[in-house]
Design a protein around this nucleic acid. Structure first.
Lengths: 242, 242
DNA sequence: CAGTGGTCTAGACCACGAA
DNA sequence: TCGTGGTCTAGACCACTGT
């Protein structure tokens, strides 16, 4: 963690980082204004802002326009467990929005249905305290989804049980994980900086007949998400790595 | 992809991004100097550099001090397939360095051996053409590793077969995936900007006796890596999601 | 050496939030 | 309104790369 050729902004960032990690700047606390910090560190405001940008990229501070810079709560990391379906027992409180629509290009392709096929969209937004944590769009072919989906089910348990109740047996879940920057709406929904990389998971669940029963597009903030995948082998199979 | 309240640097970044994606700026090509671009776009150099920083964060351009800004080769994405061991049939050419050492804190804990236990370290660096792609540190308990590891095996095939040959049956591979910024040595080894997020995979392979036979720490560049994990279910088990 | 990017300055003006 | 962060300017000087 020691920068060899420390530029000023790195020195400042290191100093502030120490203040935060040692607790002298506490969570949710407001930092002195940028003008004041610039005076304190004897640098110009752009340089000081550059230092803050480093901390922001690390997810240590949050900038709020017109209010100030705030120390972010020491990130409680949340573990995403791969291989599942719609959260049966969500770890965090979740709000759900249900929409009936017709499959567009990407979703249709993943669901392996014709474009325009009726699907049910479930939009999950999980919260950790007051701050949003993760965003999920789940798509289920309409004929698999229960006919009467409650307009705004407060308990995703309902949704989950609806899904898990009368479905054919799940045989395979394939998850594609990639890193990217959030789109503006994603950054807004998760209240993260658009410079903070996210973990994007595309999950496709298949039943015993080979039919795709669920497609989920998950957006997990990169600074506080661990994703865990477990593969069990019965024989001595091996896969490759690039 | 349309920025509503486009600041100048976003306008410039959008323009250059288009020039790149439409091929009017070709791969490996040098961009005009920052001074020249600043004149062309009628902005100051910091603003222009700010625009380039956006493209750099997206992995579209590469800055080389003293030489210029270069369009990066259209990123051939490489898929990491989860659930495997040391690459049996690596997709990309790999250079390997073997070292015998004693387990330190983290590695010892993951291997579930006492600190100071002898382990063999395999350092893999895969290349895609001339540019490095991924970095892997694989740790195997010494008594599981073959006694005579060649000093510098050019063919990882050798290493892989050594590993896959006389090992107990693999039963479970657990992979923990997270996003973070690269450490300076990682950024140097992969020749990526230290602002480009990477996918860090911690892979723990267990054999039939419950013993950990391999721990791998993988670093995969976020701008050109897909990681795919497949979970097969025999019963209708379900997992949770945060 | 000349040309390039890397860093920094000392301001200016705009946009947002709270009173 | 005032204080905050967001953006931008028009330079300056340093560090690296090639000739």
């Amino acid at each position: 963690m020691i920068s060899s050729v420390a530029s000023r902004r790195h020195v400042i960032a290191d100093d502030l980082r120490n203040l935060i990690s040692t607790g002298r700047l506490k969570a949710r606390e407001r930092l002195p204004s940028e003008a004041e910090l610039a005076v304190r560190y004897q640098v110009s405001t752009p340089t000081l802002r550059n230092a803050l940008a480093l901390l922001q990229a690390e997810g240590l501070i949050e900038k709020i326009h017109g209010k100030g810079n705030f120390v972010r709560r020491p990130l409680p990391r949340v573990t995403y467990v791969g291989g599942g379906l719609v959260p049966a027992q969500p770890v965090l409180p979740v709000s759900v929005h249900v929409k009936k629509l017709r499959a567009r290009g990407d979703v249709a392709a993943l669901l392996r249905v014709a474009a325009g096929s009726p699907v049910t969209e479930l939009r999950f937004l999980s919260h950790d305290g007051q701050t949003p944590h993760s965003l999920a769009h789940v798509y289920v072919p309409r004929d698999l989804a229960p006919t009467d989906v409650p307009a705004d089910p407060h308990w995703p348990q309902e949704v989950a049980s609806l899904l898990s109740g009368s479905l054919p047996l799940l045989t395979e879940v394939q998850e594609k994980v990639l890193v990217r920057l959030p789109t503006p709406p994603e950054a807004a929904a998760l209240r993260i900086s658009s410079t903070l990389a996210i973990l994007a998971v595309t999950r496709v669940a298949t039943d015993t007949t080979g039919r795709v029963i669920e497609v989920a597009l998950l957006v997990l903030p990169g600074d506080r998400t661990d994703a865990v995948f477990t593969t069990r082998h019965t024989t001595g199979e091996r896969s490759a790595e690039g």
